[in-house]
Design a protein around this nucleic acid. Structure first.
Lengths: 342, 342
DNA sequence: AATTTAGGCTAAAACGTTTTAGTTCTTTTC
DNA sequence: GAAAAGAACTAAAACGTTTTAGCCTAAATT
């Protein structure tokens, strides 16, 4: 059984292809198609189960009503939630989302952009990797709007980005730890050159400094990105081995690192918060349910997704070469969720 | 800056559109295009940054090299992992994946199928909702292959499905609990008419029966699908309130329910496994890290994804109306992961 | 009565590819 | 020396839409 096309309907209804098209696109009235013909066509179309071919439509109109979403890894809770919120929000504008994961690989990211561009998506929401700014600028030059999420390029203020206020979030967490009397605060971050993580790191140092505390290199662990689970775990275990003595608190800078941290703490049988206070950037079911429950700086994931979509939609509506607003960076506030771990 | 098309290249290289097409599709040799022209065209194409328009290509060839993936909810860990494994596997065959979530809503699922069909995906991998079999059969009739995952339609053996052996998995879990001496085993499931959950329930009863134990209705809690977090939690709390007396073990039939269960156990301060043994169908970071660690029946998520893709690819290769193999149901074995909770 | 306007439709081009069937030379073959 | 074969390309149709420009008839206006 073959798909039915607009001309099948035209033939069966005894009208022209154009007429059918007008009816299907609610332009029948404007095009002065008579009531009878409209009804006839609608009836035949329903009867034959007609569904317009979006490829053809997209080819003709240049619009696919699709946005390309590139995240780091769709199987990560943070990105999965973000993706869902973007999918839901896009639906409200009658847009479909095509997702893919970069696995934080620059080359793969480039390939994905290519692939989405070949598929003629109307716009992009991208969690960028390093060195992707050129490719992204090229998209903008082709008049395909892009909104970055979670990360951004500080040297490219013209590329809009929606993200949590990383500096402010970590600052708030640090202030809280210090306020509670902790002084030997360890930090676990992930190796990356990207600005959002640098902002988090900078906040850590700045707050320490502001309180007259010296950042101590031995308290800062940067886990290599490519290390496997076991290796990464080992690093964290090593850092926390002296908990209670040289370390009295630890701040994990991502969701993934926090989970790793819990594993290490469990392994070392560290008492939390007795021997070690724990704080993590990014929430996760596990932090809510672990014993003790883990305090977190929570990103407004849904809000990020929504804002990213609405920003993109605005750009998509812009008829021609309207000038982009210069203040393209949107930072949303993070919440400090106080739980038992500190 | 406009996109460059095949005819831009043709013009610039001083050849015909067909020649360019042949070169771009590696048919140049077969079509006896001279070495010089091939090089010329390739050079111009590279220089102009040509990227074939997949809409046009798809329209012409009828193949989009895209598969549509419909899951229940992409933000759920199980589906997110499954989606990632499908994406990765599809990539090996040079196929792209378009995902969407049904939220377990029949109507939404239908809409999604429609949308994917309009976008001319070549095949589908679907986590079906209830009453979707007709729509799926329609796809098959249109010669669009479908593979179900996680769930299936028992009355439609002709629709291929890849899923864990639910009956066997739950049986294995139950045997383990009974073997360990537990007799008052509670069950928490989610309300649904779908066969995969019925299989799990049936295994529970059958194993009890096989050991001369009477299934006790008061020990079985079926959480309504639509209930919110709080309401669902309340239900589980109520069931487990008598832990240590009327209940000595509990088997959660899904990932989500297990997480809910942990929350209830935490709230009630039940000692696990002292007062209550706990087992869950489906693994999750949380089960590995909670104290005590929770034993699970683990689904082979990656294998399901891979098998689903390879099954689909086989159908996609089939030239015409080859008869479908009748044994379309593929059940993969689940593992019992023994941890501290039992 | 001649022109305009309106009503109700349709023809055909265009979007960017792929692919079939040629076309035009040149070289072999008998 | 005519026919066949080969080499190197190209023209044009087709995929399924949307949309512009028009056609034809009937009614309204001058």
């Amino acid at each position: 059984m073959k798909k039915v096309s607009i001309s099948d309907i035209a033939r069966k209804a005894g009208v022209s292809v154009s007429t059918v098209s007008f009816v299907m696109n609610d332009k029948a009235v404007k095009m002065r198609i008579s009531r009878e013909v409209i009804e006839k066509v609608e009836h035949v179309a329903r009867e034959m189960g007609y569904r317009p071919n979006q490829l053809a439509r997209g080819l003709r109109t240049g619009k696919t009503k699709t946005i390309g979403l590139i995240v780091e890894n769709i199987s990560n809770a943070f990105f999965a939630t973000l993706a869902k919120s973007i999918e839901d929000e896009a639906k409200k504008y009658d847009y479909k989302v095509v997702y893919c994961s970069t696995d934080n690989d620059e080359e793969k990211a480039r390939e994905l952009i290519n692939m989405l561009s070949q598929r003629q998506v109307d716009g992009y929401i991208i969690t960028p990797t390093l060195n992707l700014s050129e490719d992204i600028c090229r998209l903008q030059a082709e008049n395909k709007p892009v909104v970055l999420i979670d990360r951004y390029f500080p040297q490219h203020e013209e590329i809009p980005a929606v993200l949590v206020d990383n500096y402010e979030g970590v600052s708030r967490g640090m202030e809280y730890l210090i306020d509670k009397g902790y002084r030997k605060i360890a930090l676990v971050s992930i190796e990356t050159e990207m600005a959002h993580m640098k902002d988090r790191l900078r906040a850590y140092s700045d707050v320490l400094g502001r309180h007259g505390l010296q950042p101590d290199d031995r308290l800062v662990k940067i886990v290599p990105y490519s290390s496997d689970h076991e290796a990464a775990l080992k690093e964290v275990v090593q850092l926390l081995a002296s908990a209670g003595k040289d370390v009295d608190a630890v701040f994990f800078l991502t969701n993934y690192l926090g989970v790793l941290g819990i594993e290490a703490i469990k392994k070392l049988q560290i008492k939390v918060p007795g021997e070690l206070a724990v704080l993590c950037f990014d929430d996760n079911d596990i932090f809510r349910l672990y014993t003790p429950t883990i305090s977190v700086i929570r990103q407004p994931v849904e809000a990020i997704g929504q804002k990213a979509v609405s920003t993109l939609m605005e750009r998509l509506k812009q008829p021609g070469e309207e000038p982009y607003p210069p203040h393209a960076l949107i930072r949303l506030e993070a919440d400090l969720i106080k739980r038992e771990s500190i």
